[in-house]
């Protein structure tokens, strides 16, 4: 690494230790509940319902997983979720970056109006427009299609603002000089900005991926066909709705926890991959020094 941390006196060492401990304490508040869930998911039905602090499976059993697997026929909802999440995220990032890029031009006529136009969409409570939104989807013949789910939240003011703030960190003069060399906007956008804001791009991809994967209201509202359910919808009935009065089958805690684990595995799988970009960004910065 650089000489940034060369002067490692005792003060620095104490600070580093305290700092590490502080982070460790925070991590524990996240880890313990998670381990708890994981341990319960691998416990047997009866054992999982005993009131204890479980940090290791009690009466180890994978029956929770097999019940989720069997009763949900999980491949189809999983595939639906993957399709909607991957395509939706790709399009979302593309469109949001485009708009984010537009907003870095301070003298663009109409910029302020367009920015307000975008900001207002962020203030609309979804509940207020749920019914009209359903009607729009119905009129476009999108009810019961995965397209409706891809289109739901296809662009968001949130991502636009984020991308804009990342693009702002790219030195403006670079674009100017490229323009003088005769490069078009699209080329500058693709070859310079998208590349240089990779860490930002990774951030938006991650956020959007998680958001889409956990998307719930849209599939509940727009999808009636059980064949087109996404994973979250299929799982929710199992994980949460324990209050039903005519419900006749028993969802023990291990089944619920297995459902939770299954629903977050894909996210856990994607995350380190995206995280690499942050790290690469950091290393890139370091190697320039």
């Amino acid at each position: 690494m650089s000489d940034r941390f060369e002067r490692l006196g005792w003060k620095n060492k104490t600070f580093d230790t305290l700092n590490a401990l502080f982070l460790l304490a925070l991590m524990l508040t996240m880890l313990i509940p998670f381990i708890n869930v994981l341990a319960l998911s691998f416990s047997s039905g009866v054992a999982s319902m005993q009131p204890d602090i479980v940090l290791w499976p009690k009466a180890f059993s994978a029956e929770g997983y097999s019940i989720v697997w069997k009763s949900l026929d999980i491949w189809r909802p999983l595939m639906n979720s993957v399709i909607v999440t991957v395509i939706g995220t790709a399009l979302h990032v593309m469109l949001s970056s485009l708009a984010g890029y537009v907003f870095i031009y301070p003298r663009l006529p109409g910029r302020k109006i367009m920015l307000t136009f975008v900001l207002i969409t962020m203030m609309v409570p979804q509940e207020a427009i749920m019914i009209p939104l359903y009607v729009v989807n119905k009129d476009l013949h999108l009810i019961n299609t995965l397209t409706a789910l891809v289109l739901s939240g296809l662009v968001s003011g949130f991502s636009i603002l984020l991308m804009r703030s990342f693009f702002l960190n790219v030195p403006y003069e670079m674009a100017e000089s490229a323009k003088i060399d005769g490069a078009g906007e699209f080329r500058i956008f693709l070859t310079m900005y998208m590349r240089l804001a990779a860490a930002g791009l990774a951030t938006v991809v991650l956020f959007e991926f998680v958001g889409r994967w956990n998307m719930f209201t849209a599939p509940v509202m727009f999808i009636n066909d059980t064949m087109k359910y996404t994973l979250q919808v299929a799982l929710k009935a199992m994980i949460i709705d324990t209050n039903s009065n005519s419900g006749t089958y028993m969802i023990t805690t291990n089944v619920r926890m297995a459902g939770i684990i299954i629903s977050i595995i894909p996210l856990m799988a994607v995350y380190p991959f995206v995280q690499k970009y942050f790290m690469k960004g950091i290393l890139l910065g370091a190697s320039k020094e």
Partner: peptide, 20 residues
């Protein structure tokens, strides 16, 4: 037969008021 997995009340309301 359409049997929503959850949020049934909300589904019924949305469907009815949007003319489904």
């Amino acid at each position: 037969l359409e049997k929503p997995a959850s949020d049934y009340d909300q589904k019924v309301l949305t469907a009815l008021s949007s003319g489904e």
